[in-house]
């Protein structure tokens, strides 16, 4: 059920195995490569294609939205649904974010080429989730994948009102 975001919770776009509790990377490029290859493994797609899409979007402007959070995203021809993946970084890295803060939480979103408004809605949902008071602190303090998954999917804003 790819395009029915009106009734969608984050639980529909992110699966328990798409949570990386302690990713070790040294920079933005490596971070993007890592999340791209994890996504490629789960989606059974070419990781280069995903990485290129993310990189292309970063060229327009960083997806670091401030406060140590980045939401890299892109549209792909071969993805048939919205796909989310979250990574908690061991060490914060520079992500060229506007506020200059190093990033340690990455939420990846991939969308089908035809997603249109759903792509934007999903981005908004993710951003609102990560702005929820206290949630980011809890994420930073958690190293367990299933606990992280529970945090992001059971939060009030991850479900439709």
């Amino acid at each position: 059920m790819p395009h029915v975001l009106k009734t969608m919770a984050l639980i529909d776009i992110i699966s328990p195995n798409a949570v990386l509790p302690s990713l070790k990377v040294n920079g933005k490029k490596q971070a993007l490569q890592e999340v791209a290859s994890q996504a490629a493994r789960l989606l059974k797609l070419d990781d280069r294609e995903i990485f290129e899409a993310l990189l292309q979007r970063e060229r327009l402007g960083s997806t670091g939205i401030g406060d140590g959070i980045a939401i890299p995203h892109g549209k792909l021809a071969h993805v048939d649904r919205l796909f989310g993946l979250m990574a908690r970084l061991e060490r914060p890295i520079d992500f060229e974010a506007l506020d200059g803060q190093p990033v340690d939480i990455i939420f990846l979103l991939l969308a089908p080429e035809t997603a249109g408004a759903d792509h934007l809605k999903a981005l908004a949902r993710i951003a609102r989730l990560l702005r929820e008071p206290g949630l980011v602190d809890s994420i930073r303090a958690t190293r367990d994948a299933s606990a992280l998954y529970a945090l992001i999917t059971q939060s009030a804003v991850s479900h439709p009102a």
Binding site: G61, I71, L123, A124, A127, R128, R131
Partner: peptide, 8 residues
């Protein structure tokens, strides 16, 4: 509420 803000 400005939900997601990306800068260009």
């Amino acid at each position: 509420a400005l939900s997601a803000v990306f800068t260009f």
